[in-house]
Computed example of a mutant assay.
Amino acid sequence: MSSVFTPADTTRFLLIGGCGRSGTTFIQERLGACNEISGILDFESKLFAEPASIPDLFDFYVYSYTQSRFDWMANIFVSSVERNFALLPESNEVAPITKDSAVAAAREFVGHLYRVRTGSLNLADAFRRYATPFLYGVLQPEPARWVLEKTPHNALQFGRVLNVYPKSRLIHVVRDPRRIAESLARQDWFTGSFEDAVIWVRLYYEQYWRLRSSSGGKNDRELTIRLEDCVNSPRVISQRIGEFLDIEDTQIRFDGDIVLPNQGFRNLSDDQLQFANSQLFPTIEAFGYNLEL
Score class of each variant (00 low, 15 high):
104 A>G: 08
254 F>R: 02
287 F>A: 13
202 R>S: 03
199 I>Q: 10
283 T>M: 09
44 E>V: 00
259 V>E: 13
142 E>W: 09
263 Q>H: 11
265 F>P: 10
113 L>E: 06
114 Y>H: 10
24 T>C: 05
101 S>C: 07
184 L>H: 02
70 F>A: 00
25 T>M: 02
30 R>F: 07
150 K>S: 04
9 D>F: 04
263 Q>C: 12
154 N>S: 08
188 D>G: 03
252 I>N: 03
78 V>W: 09
78 V>R: 07
165 Y>N: 13
118 T>M: 14
182 E>D: 12
243 E>T: 08
114 Y>S: 09
293 L>G: 15
10 T>M: 12
212 R>C: 13
69 R>T: 11
174 V>W: 02
169 R>L: 04
255 D>Y: 08
131 A>F: 03
134 F>S: 09
63 Y>D: 14
34 C>E: 05
19 C>Q: 07
80 S>C: 10
111 G>A: 10
110 V>T: 05
158 F>P: 10
107 R>H: 12
238 S>K: 02
51 P>L: 06
113 L>M: 07
221 R>H: 14
288 G>I: 00
209 W>P: 12
242 G>C: 03
39 G>K: 03
44 E>S: 06
82 E>L: 11
71 D>P: 12
254 F>K: 04
274 Q>H: 14
200 W>F: 14
179 R>E: 12
154 N>P: 02
59 D>Y: 07
259 V>R: 06
69 R>H: 14
40 I>Y: 01
253 R>G: 15
18 G>T: 01
11 T>Q: 11
197 A>L: 02
11 T>A: 13
214 S>D: 15
159 G>L: 11
169 R>S: 14
166 P>G: 05
217 G>N: 04
140 Q>T: 14
222 E>R: 03
182 E>I: 13
287 F>H: 11
159 G>F: 04
274 Q>S: 15
192 G>D: 06
140 Q>R: 09
91 S>R: 04
255 D>I: 01
85 F>N: 10
56 D>Q: 11
276 A>M: 01
122 N>A: 12
283 T>A: 13
175 R>T: 01
259 V>I: 10
221 R>G: 15
208 Y>I: 07
286 A>Q: 08
197 A>P: 06
118 T>H: 13
150 K>W: 02
